[in-house]
Amino acid sequence: MRKTFVNALIDLATNDERIVLLTGDLGFMVMEPFIERFPNRFVNVGVAEQNMVGVATGMAESGMIPYVYSITPFAVLRPYEFIRNGPIYHQLKVRIIGVGAGLEYGHDGISHFGIDDIGVLRVQPGISIFAPADYQQADSIFRKTWDMRGPIYYRLSKDEKSVVPNLSAAFEIGEAQFIENGNDILIVTLGTIALEAAKAIELLKISGVHASLLMISSINPPPLASLSQILPKFKKIITAESHYINGGIGSMIAEFIAEKSLHCTLIRCGIDHIPNGQIGHTEYLLQTFGIDEKSIAAKALSVLQGKNI
């Protein structure tokens, strides 16, 4: 989605002089088209993410729309208090781009895992949060949200190719996308784990299980109307996210079920302990934490068989 982002940003920046791009010294071989087109609207602030968000705050107060870019933990966790006191509190149009969400920097270790970003930002009421399920939807999100009031966090994947079947780039602010396949069980996903869930649903069909998919790409504003419409139809719900199980969409769905007194079973799939230091391909890590297609399908089957309850 990095190239999708840069291409969308070039289009947006062509039509709006307020847009500038700041990076914390990351984006080599990604940002060059923007830099070539708008050399004076690109700022590499160096490896200094706190200052990057602070500078973006000052620029936004002056009427600009700065996009700040880094790997997820460096975009969110390192400058977190700057995000809180700056663009969130002042309600300024700073756009935070976190790349490599979840376990995508699998060989880089815990320092580079973006597995707590949604949790720490979701508690803040004044920031929009979007996590595209695939690059096509990412493009829709960038073009539908860029001029929204207040700050935005975009949780981006490095995947530039995969497509969630039948999603067709659909996106609306504050809505979730539903792909109906049956009422046996609902799988709710965050971001690109929708790709794994879609494949899990195909695996489940072989076992005669018909599962539906609800993709949450608009975390804030939360898709409350979608949840009200879809969740009561199901007695068994699984959430799957490349994120700690606390704070992400598992928590969002648990809150919703409790507050609406829905009568259903919820199983939250995600990262449930500190990664023990093992590195590896993203696929390997998704398997390790039970959020790959096979694990999600197996979990669904065991839930339907009355286990894990």
Binding site: V20, N40, R41, V43, Q50, N51, V53, G54, V55, A56, T57, G58, M59, A60, E61, S62, G63, M64, P66, E81, F82, N85, G86, Y89, H90
Partner: peptide, 30 residues
């Protein structure tokens, strides 16, 4: 920043110079 004449909310030390640098950079770009 809700107070008349105040541009930036502050209180957490070490943030204001970054805000100011951004405002200064914006002025140059504009």
């Amino acid at each position: 920043a809700n107070i008349t004449g105040v541009d930036f909310t502050s209180g957490s030390l070490g943030q204001g110079l970054s805000f100011g640098a951004g405002a200064a950079l914006a002025a140059k770009l504009q």
